[in-house]
Design a binder for these strands. Sequence first.
DNA 1: CGTTTCGTGACATCGACGTGACATTTGTCG
DNA 2: CGACAAATGTCACGTCGATGTCACGAAACG
Lengths: 226, 226
Amino acid sequence: MSRILVVEDDPAILRGLSDNLQAESYDVVTARDGETGYRLIREQQPDLVILDLMLPKLGGYEVCRKVREEGVSTPILMLTARGEESDRVLGLDLGADDYVTKPFSIRELLARVRALLRRAKPPQPLPDELRFADLVVDFKRYEARKGDTPLKLTRKEFGTLQLLAARAGEVVTRDELLNEVWDYHNYPTTRTVDNHIASLRAKIEENTAEPQHLLTVHGVGYRLVW
Amino acid sequence: MSRILVVEDDPAILRGLSDNLQAESYDVVTARDGETGYRLIREQQPDLVILDLMLPKLGGYEVCRKVREEGVSTPILMLTARGEESDRVLGLDLGADDYVTKPFSIRELLARVRALLRRAKPPQPLPDELRFADLVVDFKRYEARKGDTPLKLTRKEFGTLQLLAARAGEVVTRDELLNEVWDYHNYPTTRTVDNHIASLRAKIEENTAEPQHLLTVHGVGYRLVW
DNA sequence: CGTTTCGTGACATCGACGTGACATTTGTCG
DNA sequence: CGACAAATGTCACGTCGATGTCACGAAACG
């Protein structure tokens, strides 16, 4: 389901939003100040951001402007106590997609969340299987074979391979892998990715010293070719 | 090039900043007190403001707040002797975009200036691939071929080529390349760019002594033609 | 309680990168 | 035309970050 980041300093409102969104079976991530919110937008790559205007450390306007300038296109729903037209205009100018003024009804907010998510681009579909050379991987059954010999792949290995396969040939960064394959409760270091790549190579490559399919792009990430 | 307004009352620091910025070929405008600075922001419409916190007549905070209230979105880099977190927070809340505490290294300040200017400009779309003559470059896959032979390009080489391709035929200055291809943590000299151009030529030109595509424009920069 | 999976750290290795020295070219001005 | 300075080309070297690899311990799981 979709991941939603809520950036709000008022604990009561944050709690209320979080509960209601979770009840709708969204993944909810929260931040209580602008700086954390800004960081989480990049780390978690949420599908939607609900952003309060008045925030400690870094205001909602600044967060909005900064992420937009960096080319992030995640929909942003602005939240504010002030209902003035000028705020609305400024917010939308800075790249917000919608605007709700406090106090708001939860029903209306959820409706707007759904609308924004519908508008957003659908997440990239992951393949059900992968076949090349003598390798067969079935992501639905969690089964893999190389030639006649069955391979034992772990969950992370399946996930890693699946994302790489979905973007066949393109470079996938370590951060992207962490965001897609790992959940946001544990967010290990990028070195962890290297290790899983290594164990994948040990299983699918003939010679790990000179991988033919699971290639490293120095300073960028990994790519899968065949 | 970009115009920068420096508002600083200490003559020594003002002079140092001004010289260094001019050496980087920025247009520099200066003010020694807050009132003048405030006026010049509106009159000169600089692309960036470097704003000291402690100023005669009108403090840096006030200048920042006032121009932001007027909807001016010019990036502001705050400068202060005090390094306390509270100052930083206040500054960012009031609409400053970045913050440097004295004493600061000129190189770091210049890097932040570049970063702010880069963010302020709308990012220009970069091509996904480049094809001419027998050359094929895929920037998503980080793959390149010249005829039948695969080319091994480094990250910087891909980036350099991509920016040149985005502005095909136009001259791109070394500074622009440094700003786009290099991140602001490293900001080498412009000579570094020459080196990467040289290695690119070695890979894509038939005869590096007489480049046909990656051309030098003496005293300006490089351009890519085909 | 044993097994599997996973995350982390240590270590070695490799590649990309920045820098400086020197050679060469270009532009400028006498 | 000729000399000089600045800009650029070229190369080699040292450094540092990125990556591969391994081993250990923790956590999850049955």
